[in-house]
Amino acid sequence: MASDVELTAMRHAIALSACGFGTTGPNPPVGCVVLNSRGAIVGRGYHRRKGEAHAEVRALSDAGPAARGGTAVVTLEPCNHVGVTPACRQALIDAEITRVVISLIDPTSRGDGGAAMLTAAGIDVETDVLRDETLAVLGPWLTATLRRRPYVIWAYALDDGQDDAMTAQLVRYLRASADVIAVNKVPDEGIPGGHSAAHFRLPANADFDTGLVPWLTAAYSGGARSVLLAGHGYADAIRDDLHAVDEIIIAVRRNVRVPTDATASFELVAVWPGWDWMTLHFRQHQREEM
């Protein structure tokens, strides 16, 4: 069972992993914390973008020799394959880590996963630590990866004809969490220039002439694992494809009727009140199994 020190370190790793939002696609946002043999934090790292060091390697580099005999606490199972970068499980073995605490097992593992290989190397491995909390960051990537279509958030404002400014405010608040954002049918990176140009490409204009799902499939092929559609103008275009939308975020003035037609298959999960506006957060009732 994970110790209190390890649980605290895992929450630290989860927070670190969120630093990769909007830039890691097609890779997952992962965080890692290294504890020395006395339980003190000596290394921290997160994955920034595909082609660069993974979270474990960055945390081990930060820790240096202090990692020897210590514990690596990581949000996703260390990779076991050599791709653009070396396998993380080997980096942990070479650093003489004696224990690895993992939150989520990677469903994309090729052959035996990193956890199995670490165990075979004599390292103590514990999994499923704070799984639900880690899903706050990794959930969209996992959903997208398992169904091979990006996780989609549709955000818009409803007002008395002055919704553009509030939609723009929603975009500023949400865009950094998405690989791709589409405003007025024009796609852009959630964080402009944030992805590796060698491993990511934007989809074509988001006019959805052939439907939302084909456009999302193209976005996924280009490396996007999360998409933000901004503006109520998408309502007609995606009415028949609402099953492909995972979350809806609606900002409404307090004197405006709360919409219900587009959210019939969604559950209300949060309400954020403001002086003049309130923001409603809906999520699909049926989410992909992870």
Rank of each mutant, 00 (worst) to 15 (best):
A136K: 14
V42S: 02
M10T: 04
A176R: 12
G20W: 07
T210M: 05
I238R: 04
R49Y: 10
T24V: 15
T134P: 05
A120V: 08
V137R: 06
P187N: 06
I181A: 12
V186W: 00
L76K: 08
A15W: 05
L7A: 10
L60G: 06
N255F: 03
L216A: 05
E126S: 14
P140H: 07
A237N: 13
T71H: 03
I153T: 15
I123R: 13
G70M: 02
D188W: 00
R147L: 01
G31C: 12
L158H: 03
N205S: 02
V125N: 10
E247I: 04
A206S: 05
P29T: 15
E247P: 02
V186H: 04
V269P: 10
L280G: 04
Y46E: 08
F282V: 10
L118G: 12
V152I: 04
A67W: 01
V180Q: 07
L212G: 03
F200E: 02
R89Y: 10
P214K: 08
D62V: 02
S109N: 12
D246L: 06
V171E: 09
A9M: 10
A264P: 00
G51P: 03
A182H: 05
N80A: 14
L174H: 11
A178M: 06
A55I: 01
A155R: 00
T98Y: 02
T75K: 02
R89S: 05
D106Y: 03
V33E: 09
I153V: 15
G231W: 13
T24I: 13
F200M: 04
E77L: 03
G64H: 04
L130Q: 13
G122L: 11
R11I: 07
A262V: 08
S103H: 10
E56T: 01
G113R: 09
R11V: 07
G20N: 11
D240K: 14
A144N: 05
R131P: 01
P214V: 07
L16R: 11
D106H: 14
D159G: 12
R99E: 02
I41F: 01
A157Y: 03
A270G: 10
L170W: 11
S61I: 00
N36E: 09
P28Y: 14
D209E: 11
N255Y: 05
P273E: 14
V152M: 08
H285G: 09
L216V: 05
D106F: 01
D179I: 07
H281T: 09
A95T: 06
L76N: 06
A55F: 00
L212F: 02
A230W: 05
L142R: 05
I250W: 01
V73S: 00
Q284Y: 00
L142K: 02
Q162E: 13
L158E: 13
D209S: 12
M166K: 07
R172Q: 12
A63W: 02
A13P: 07
D164V: 07
F21D: 15
V34K: 06
R253W: 04
E77Q: 05
T23D: 08
H81C: 01
L268T: 10
D164G: 03
V34Q: 13
V57R: 02
V74I: 15
L146S: 12
E77I: 00
N27E: 15
A218C: 01
Y151F: 15
D236Q: 14
T23V: 12
L104I: 14
L280Y: 15
S61D: 04
R58Y: 00
T85L: 04
G193I: 08
L135Q: 10
F282Q: 04
R287L: 11
V180C: 05
D160E: 12
M290G: 00
W141T: 11
V57P: 00
